[in-house]
Design a protein around this nucleic acid. Structure first.
Lengths: 347, 347
DNA sequence: TTGTATGCGTTATCAT
DNA sequence: ATGATAACGCATACAA
């Protein structure tokens, strides 16, 4: 085989000529339509291989009026000016979601389009933009603090959509999430089993479902273990926030011996403060985080934490959307994953 | 405005009817071709706004035979079976590159397609696949240990391409990189300025340009400062590798008081080992990392490190490719970024 | 079972 | 300066 100069790519027509059949037949083979003579099919398949034919998506979606593209869109409230000060993409969480999404999409020969929308104006233009970009399914990661209008707009437009995490307000849209309360309970059980008596928690922002549920779950579980009260300090899911919260907790409950933190990043900050306060971990204070993100491994001691199966969740989102692209009549579905405890050195 | 039922999107034809002109005129307005009466132009523009018209990319690229899509492709040697054990996407580095790429692409109304290729078979199919997916420019992140065939294949196919990091072998292809040697020198200067006398380094894998250059740069700089010899231990850029290397170094040079580590992850591991060995940081041993990744912040003490402007590098890749999509005759270009020292607590 | 013909929404080449 | 009209590559209704 000689090296092809970068000439025009082979078309259906070319394949037809080589195979000595009509375009329609080749098309049938390509799309594996039933009625086609096995002999001819083989001839055509060889011709396809010989020519290196690959269907032209543009032409295809132009005629079918179906696009088949998938977008991974990240919706942010408002990007603060310049500076790459750790945007969404910098968050390791994002990478794990991508990992899962890609793992499910790639075997189908699909590749997601990466879109970021960080203003209300862009949000309002998203649906037309999706049409333009040939995408007909959306995996949405919303970092919108309050109620993101996107899920509503997308479902109204009939675009199969799956959300990462339960939407702030109930809506008829697919989503994946982790059983936050169960995760918190697992942490509570562990602390109690270790013999902790004075237990506290650093909670996430009360405005977020994750923040609320993890706190509620922890309180419930502790109550069931007989602990009517647990000290609570709120953090903002950042490391620094965790440090500040830990300081407050230490002031309120100096004798605490068990701590549940609503995410690993804050737990990492808490660890530092505890150590600086002379507490040995886990001997003086047992600490459990949430997420099982990378920091859990670089903390010292390494963090015992409640693992969120983020990759599996990403893959599930992809599946949901694909299912609904195939059958738009499917109802909105939610898949809640069970978290599990990853025991390391901090508890 | 009443809610549109999800009917067929408006076409050029629709706009033309509303504006009372021909398709051709609308097309001219949309593509801002000169010859068009200002009055008509305005009429058409209003019609476009009224109808909410958005050009159909498929139809457009079908006729122009230009696609204009951009892909961010990650090339891996071979994905090890199942398990989401921190693939490329989980690496925080990836997120930062994406951040930079998106920051440059989005203002142009472009969104990258995310593609992963992790086998030679897939690599060989990539170029046709790109055609199919309508992409005409590639941002390539190669994790191929040896020589990745992709840059060659892409340039042969005439696809504008930019690499993240210098290719293992010289090739006529665009790339961005950081001045590794300069970065290593900056670290050396800092250690010497602090008065370190017994200096060692944990190097990256000798097979990688980054590993080689950072080591060479560090040795050179130390030599210029009069230190003929520095103890070296090789790591594999992982935290665990950093721990092992640190142990070896401690055995060889127990009195060391200064350490340069070729990346933050290994530095984090080294920190742990040093602390366990009773060394105070930075008083007993000053430690400097490389990258300024997230771990640099969650380490204790927080890591002084050589910052790679990854986001800017990603943006530069995007610019290079866009430039070459506009003018394919442009020569291959390289942009080397200057790293800078970020001083925190470890040195 | 196979081939022929039509049209998807655009741009581009012609006339006008 | 503007309007017909012919492709672009493909799927599909229809004819054979």
């Amino acid at each position: 085989m000689t090296t092809q100069p970068p000439s025009a790519p082979p078309t259906l027509e070319d394949v037809a000529r080589v195979a000595g059949v009509s375009r329609a037949t080749v098309s049938r083979v390509v799309n594996s339509v039933r009625n086609v003579d096995p002999k001819l099919r083989e001839t055509v398949e060889r011709a396809i291989a010989d020519t290196g034919y690959v269907p032209n998506r543009a032409a295809r979606s132009l005629v079918t009026r179906r696009t088949g593209g998938i977008a991974l869109v990240v919706s942010e409230p408002e990007r603060h000016v310049e500076a790459f000060t750790g945007g969404v993409f910098g968050d390791p969480f994002f990478g794990r979601v991508v990992e899962g999404v890609v793992s499910h999409l790639r075997p189908q020969g699909l590749h997601p389009l990466l879109m970021l929308v960080d203003s209300d104006e862009e949000r309002s233009k998203l649906v037309p933009k999706l049409r333009q970009e040939q995408v007909s399914g959306v995996l949405l990661i919303s970092l919108h603090p309050a109620e993101d209008p996107l899920p509503r707009m997308l479902t109204d437009a009939g675009v199969p959509t799956a959300l990462f995490a339960r939407p702030a307000r109930p809506a008829p849209v697919c989503y994946v999430d982790v059983a936050h309360q169960d995760g918190a309970r697992i942490a509570a059980d562990r602390l109690v089993a270790r013999g902790c008596h004075r237990v506290a928690t650093i909670a996430g922002p009360p405005g977020t479902p994750a923040g609320q549920d993890r706190l509620a779950g922890f309180r419930d579980a502790m109550a069931r273990h007989g602990h009517a009260y647990v000290a609570v300090a709120e953090g903002d899911f950042t490391e620094h926030g965790g440090e500040r919260a830990m300081e407050r907790l230490l002031a309120e409950e100096p004798a605490l011996d068990g701590l549940f933190v609503a995410n690993d990043l804050m737990a990492s900050g808490a660890l530092t403060v505890l150590r600086d306060a002379g507490r040995r971990i886990p001997d003086d204070v047992a600490v459990i985080g949430f997420d099982d993100s990378r920091v859990a491994l670089s903390c010292r001691p390494r963090l015992t934490t409640v693992r969120q199966p983020v990759e599996e969740m990403g893959a599930a989102m992809a599946r949901m959307v694909l299912d609904r692209m195939a059958d738009p009549e499917l109802r909105a579905e939610s898949v809640i994953f069970e978290p599990k405890l990853v025991v390391r050195d901090s508890a």
